[in-house]
Design a protein around this nucleic acid. Structure first.
Lengths: 157, 157
DNA sequence: ATTCTGATTGCATATTTATACATTTTTATA
DNA sequence: TATAAAAATGTATAAATATGCAATCAGAAT
């Protein structure tokens, strides 16, 4: 039910903060209202392919693409790579991205010319998309999944 | 002397083979004639900043070329300095800033991950923040004051 | 509705990894 | 060379992380 939201939150937290352990991440998640155990978090991190690298004062979790890149990802999609999470408020969709990826992603949305989205503006790590009146968030998610199939794995449901 | 050779060997092994655990790597190293324990290997990996990512059948160790910057705490707060005013309209907050400060301030808001704000975009001297549905402007002001206490003095209405 | 199937999760625990401490080895300096 | 200081290491163990298993839940199919 809320697993996708949880994964979104994990992606967001990890890309914005230096997290040193699963316990620390777990604490942040429970602060945000998510109810889970370390076991589930471990599985989430595995599913998200979140990596851990040594840092000066301990360790740090990072989105794996940040250090895989070259060898295995032959068909690399910057759109899927930079896309972190999407949420809705009223007639707006707010898409969180890796820093500097918002323009790439907004551009992909604009070029797809999906009917459900009137237009976008892009900040540094955020895209705001204005929804056409009468469309639900589910419909918009479906539309994005259809026009940008590389994002399907990162959209809820 | 022997340590540098060992580190070289570790680098080589890790970049050429999929290693799933320190024990596995340790075994390869002892096969090559190196004499060490898991404890030393753990320290070596930390020194080499070797990361570990989940892979299909377990985990995989990799050399990470990129580092992650850790921000230092300073006395001067560009967030407080650049912040001029905030006003609300519907589910949006509009923050006026000194020219070129909008991205800094939007970024601070994004990183705070306050529940009340879904996301932001920044122009030159303006930040637009999308509020989560159900929150009043007063609640948002309180949240900003809590997450960014350096702004407290500037949030009176 | 009932049954089946697969996904999700917590609990308990196994496995893996990091580290405090003591010791040895190396390096630097007088 | 002798001595002090720093680096490297092993042992034992703490700390962190992964996972087998059983229970629960969500959908799909009958």
């Amino acid at each position: 039910m809320s697993k996708e939201k949880r994964l979104d939150a994990i992606r967001k937290i990890i890309s914005n903060h230096k997290i040193g352990s699963q316990e620390e991440l777990l604490s942040r998640l429970t602060d945000l209202g998510f109810d889970l155990t370390q076991a589930t978090l471990s599985r989430d991190l595995k599913q998200l392919k979140v990596g851990r690298i040594p840092s000066d004062n301990g360790f740090s979790y990072i989105i794996s693409q940040k250090f895989i890149d070259s060898s295995e990802n032959r068909e690399f999609s910057p759109v899927a790579y930079g896309f972190l999470a999407i949420e809705f408020s009223g007639n707006l969709a707010v898409i969180k991205t890796l820093p500097a990826y918002s323009h790439t992603i907004a551009d992909a949305i604009d070029k797809s010319e999906m009917n459900e989205i009137l237009g976008t503006v892009a900040g540094n790590d955020t895209v705001i998309a204005v929804l056409r009146e009468g469309y639900s968030s589910d419909q918009v998610i479906n539309a994005i999944g259809n026009f940008l199939p590389e994002l399907k794995g990162k959209l809820k449901q």
